[in-house]
Amino acid sequence: MEPKETLAMVQGQAEIWQHMFSFVDSMALKCAVELRIADIIHCYGSAITLRQIASGINSPSPNISHLARIMRSLVRKNIFTEHHHPVDGGGETLYGLTQTSKWLLHDAELSLVPMMILQNHSWLLTPWHCLGQSIKEGGTAFNKVHGDEVWDFASKNPDFNNIFNDAMACTAKNVMRVILAGYEDGFGCMGSLADVGGGTGGMIAEIVKAHPHIKGINFDLPHVIATAPLHEGVTHVGGDMFDAIPNADAIFMKWVLHDWSDEHCINILKNCRKAIQQKSGKVIIVDIVVEKDGNDLFDEIRMAFDLLMMVHTIGGKERTELEWKKLLEEVGFARYKIIKIPTIPSIIVAYPYNCCCEDVVGATHGLLDA
């Protein structure tokens, strides 16, 4: 075997090993979240020792050597920092936060902890073991494990419903500021806005807070609305988006359509068109636009989300711009535009009619007109 070919084989072997054990990173992160390691360091306000971290863990006798190995792994992944502090001629290792581990703080305004808890829970992890079976036999991997589709499972399981709603609320917070900045002018010309699949109402509440002239409607399944807190300027409405959607000047949907097949999405979008009250109305879709050869910060995550949809939903998928275009044309939307924002999804604005109150020529952030 030629040296170049030998090197390629070794590199290939290393890559397979890395993929094989990529779950270890997720489990180490889950461990850090469960032990609240980032919160413990944050409470001190500076880098701290391993024993100080251990003293903050809710346990009478934490295993220090195991904790050290978890921290070594997370430091290598740049989740935490590590440096040595000289003490009386000796040295002590201090661990600190990074911009990455700040996303692991439980009570921070911007946090990924609820999503980490959801995605790494056995309820969602176990179905991945049935991915091959679902390809052979059809059906969803989630159903094969739990005997229900995800929405039915949530309606019957309050604990899962709460974890799921917390995760959705956290993603709403994380992307809300980016959406408000990327589409600031777009919210100015509407009197009412219905958030379809709005969960417990966190997203529409932030929009109304930034634009108090908007009458907000949070629309979701009754079992979701039942747990929704009161938000000023927001009315909670329970129902089924496949039957009807509350009337409004505009419809907002964040990470809703990717859960469903094209046929289901056509049904939802038709109901959106019926719900829009005026010709200047629009549907604002916050969802992923897949670029097969994209290489920005979130493209790998977007591809992962596509497989996530395949495992957990009936026909759910992430779509390319061409697939979005075909979907919107099928429902009769006159035109659309895509606004790229610095997060996982993009903003897709669809217009049922050719007239609207927005100056699309002045739009920025990667506008693509159909």
Rank of each mutant, 00 (worst) to 15 (best):
F333L: 00
P345G: 02
D240Y: 06
G188P: 01
A334I: 05
I301Y: 13
I214W: 01
H213D: 04
I245C: 06
T93Q: 08
E329D: 11
M168V: 11
N143K: 13
V87N: 08
H66C: 12
I135L: 15
P345I: 05
D220W: 03
M9S: 05
A47Y: 04
Y353A: 02
T6D: 12
G56R: 05
I117D: 08
F164W: 05
W255K: 08
F164N: 03
I217P: 01
A181G: 07
D299P: 08
D259F: 02
G294Q: 10
L327P: 00
Q278E: 09
A169V: 02
E329M: 02
L322Y: 15
A250C: 10
E291T: 12
V311Y: 07
D262T: 09
G281N: 07
A275D: 08
I163Y: 04
N267H: 08
Q52A: 15
L74T: 03
W17P: 00
I204C: 03
A8M: 10
G138S: 00
L110W: 09
H213M: 10
Q52E: 15
V113I: 12
M176L: 07
S134Q: 15
L104W: 06
M241G: 04
A32C: 14
L230N: 13
I53Y: 06
T100E: 13
L307S: 11
G182A: 03
K144C: 09
Q99C: 09
R177L: 15
P222M: 01
H146Y: 05
Q52F: 02
P3G: 00
E137R: 14
D293M: 06
A194M: 00
I214K: 04
A47N: 03
K274F: 13
Y336V: 01
T6N: 13
A172Q: 09
K254W: 12
Q13Y: 11
I347D: 03
F333P: 04
D107S: 15
M253H: 04
F153A: 12
C130K: 15
I79S: 02
H223F: 14
T343F: 11
